[in-house]
Structures are given as structure tokens and as C-alpha cells.
Computed example of a mutant assay.
Amino acid sequence: MPPESLLVVGVGDIHGRFHRVEAWMDALEAARGRPVDLVLAVGDVEAFRRADDHRRKAAKRAMPAEFAEYADGKTRMKRPLYFIGGNNEDFEALHDAPGGFELAPNVHYLGRAGLRQLRGLKIGYLSGIHAPRFFDQPLKRPTSLDTAKQAGYFRGPEVERISNLRDLDLFLVHEWPRGIVQRARDEGLSTTRPLPSYWIGNPITRRLVDTIRPRWVLCGHSHKGFAVSLGGEGHRPVSRIACLDQSARPDEAVFWLEYEGREAVRAGWGLSGEVAWKAGEPWNLTRLPAVAPPASPDDGEMEELESH
């Protein structure tokens, strides 16, 4: 029998826009002529019931709060959606299930750090961003805006828990690994887009990627599309990193992979269904869409990086 074929889609920071993501998946299915089997969200999903929730950062209260329709059973996600935590979530709702749970039919929180097997794929994950001052502090119950902010930082024991994972098909993180922009600069590839600041990302996530060596890494947080590879020296496996834009526009917020068994055979960005990469080809900035889409004025672009 031929290996099972899967269409796995990564989506960038949703920030409450569940309806938009559902419509995007409909469009991608039509373009690829097949169903989407699995949707993976890289944090800042914001499954709040109300946009003005007091636990939500003030800059985020203009964002939609569409999750209530799913939580109340009025609407159901058509495809299974699994997400990690970013640094903007309803942390009070997530706190008592660090190993993950189902928030609503077909909406699953993976948890703070761990390993999950989904449709035959081995998927590792680390929620949150790096804040050195809180790395070794215990996690407090997020009952206020301040403690909720602290809940968006990963802790040392969580990193330790996943540091021995191996043979991962996918690794989901919210914040970029440090140094991948410099890696792209060193490659010197011709690109029409400006490169992000070299300091984006954190060293803990980078150390994990260098240690775990997942085949693919999906990131969010910085609201920019990016593509780079790490590893490949000698017999060290290659980790292909795809950083996703926020889910305000699909061009670089949607990244899909088609699998045959556990082998990724092709990948692409956005909703056109056009293939940007095939197995055996290099993965770098030349695989991004040619021109970055312009920002929409109504999608919260005035926020500073830490608020992402």
C-alpha cells in the first residue's frame, strides 16, 4: 500500500480571527483539490470569549473574539486545529491543563511543552517566549494581567522536558530561534525584501533546534514570513524553519506541507496551492513569495514587538 498522504497546514498568530482561518482553509482545499487534514497554530491564538476581557492586553482588545461561537457549540471547526500558547492567550483557561486539552470540538491546546503524535507525525512543541528573569521562577496562576503576562514565558523545566526529543517531523515554537536572520545574511542570497533585525529570536529555542534537529520548525510571534535552514554539515540532519506572518493576510501566514507517510514531499505558502518547495530542494529565502504583502491598517500593526 502507498503511504498515507496528508495535507498539514501551519497558520501564524491567529489573534482571535477563527472565521478568517476557516475561510482560508476552504480556499486552500479548493486550490489543492484535496482536504486539509490537520491545522497547526504557532501561538497567540487568543481563544477569548470577549474582545474586552480584562486579561487581554489593551492593544489586543480591538481584535475579534470569535472563539465564543465555537466554545458554545454554535459553530464547529471543520478540521482539527492544534495550537501552542504564545505570549497572548487566555492563560487562566489554559493554566490547569499544562499537558493540553480540547477547548471546543476540533480545537485542541497542545500544552506548554511536550510531544504529540498526530496522524502518524511526531510533533514536538514549546509554548511561550523567553524572558530570562522568569526562566527559573515558578509559574503563578494567571489571575491578573501581570500574572497572565508571566504565563506567556516558558520555564526551565519545560525546556528540559523536551531537550531529549529526537526524530521529530515538526517542532512548533512561538518565538524564532536566535541567529536565523544572520544565517540568511551569511548565505547572501538575492532577495527583494528587507531582512528582519538580526536580534530577533531567543537563544534557548535556537539551542533546542540545534539539539533536537527536527525536520521542520514552524514559528510565529514576529509577524513576518521567513525561510532558512540550519544544520546539514557532515551527517547532521537539516532543520527547515518556516516563520509565519500573523493571520491578517494569508500570503505568508499560511504555510502548508504535503506528506507521504512521514516524508514531506512538497510545500507552499498562502492559498494559491502553488508549490514553493519539493523534497530534495534547498530551503531558504528564495522559497518565500516574491513580494511581502502590505499591512492592513485595521489589523493592530501599531503594536510593539513585545505585545505580539
Rank of each mutant, 00 (worst) to 15 (best):
P237K: 01
A23E: 15
G100H: 03
G232D: 05
V107L: 15
D210E: 15
R166I: 02
V291G: 00
N164M: 06
D186G: 14
L28K: 13
A148Q: 11
T211P: 01
K122S: 15
D72I: 03
V275A: 06
V238C: 06
P250K: 04
D167I: 01
G99N: 13
A71T: 05
G270Q: 00
P282I: 03
D299V: 11
W277H: 12
E89N: 11
R249V: 15
S190W: 00
F48I: 07
G201P: 03
L121N: 13
G73W: 03
H221N: 10
R183E: 15
G268K: 05
A279P: 08
V217E: 07
L40H: 11
P98H: 03
P105N: 05
A276F: 11
L168P: 09
P294V: 10
L110E: 01
G188K: 08
L208Q: 07
R183V: 15
D90P: 02
M25I: 09
L126A: 02
D169K: 11
K149D: 12
K224F: 12
K122C: 01
S127G: 10
M77A: 15
N106T: 07
L118T: 04
L121Y: 10
V45D: 00
E252V: 12
G268I: 01
L94M: 14
T191P: 00
W24N: 08
S229Y: 11
D298Y: 11
G12M: 01
S5M: 08
S144L: 10
P157K: 02
T205V: 15
R112F: 11
L257Q: 13
W283T: 11
I14T: 12
L110W: 03
L165V: 03
N202G: 13
E306P: 06
G100F: 04
G114S: 02
R55L: 15
A276P: 08
R183Q: 15
L81Y: 14
V209F: 08
L81P: 07
N106R: 15
D167Y: 02
L118H: 01
D72F: 05
V9T: 09
N284E: 06
F134K: 07
E233I: 03
L38F: 00
P203V: 06
G268V: 01
E22C: 12
L139I: 11
P98E: 00
S239W: 09
F83C: 10
P194H: 06
I14E: 03
W277Y: 10
S163M: 11
D186M: 09
D72W: 10
L38N: 00
E66Q: 14
H221V: 03
L244H: 05
G280M: 13
F67M: 13
G120W: 13
C219R: 01
P3L: 13
P289N: 10
T147D: 14
R193A: 10
G300V: 07
G225I: 13
L126G: 02
V181Y: 04
K122P: 02
K57H: 11
L165H: 09
M1C: 05
E66Y: 05
R55C: 06
L28G: 08
E46A: 04
G201F: 01
H221F: 02
T147P: 04
K278Y: 00
Q117A: 10
R161E: 10
D299S: 14
I180E: 02
R17H: 04
F135K: 02
V21R: 02
A290S: 08
G231D: 12
M63T: 00
T191G: 06
L115E: 12
R56S: 07
K278A: 01
L285G: 04
G220W: 02
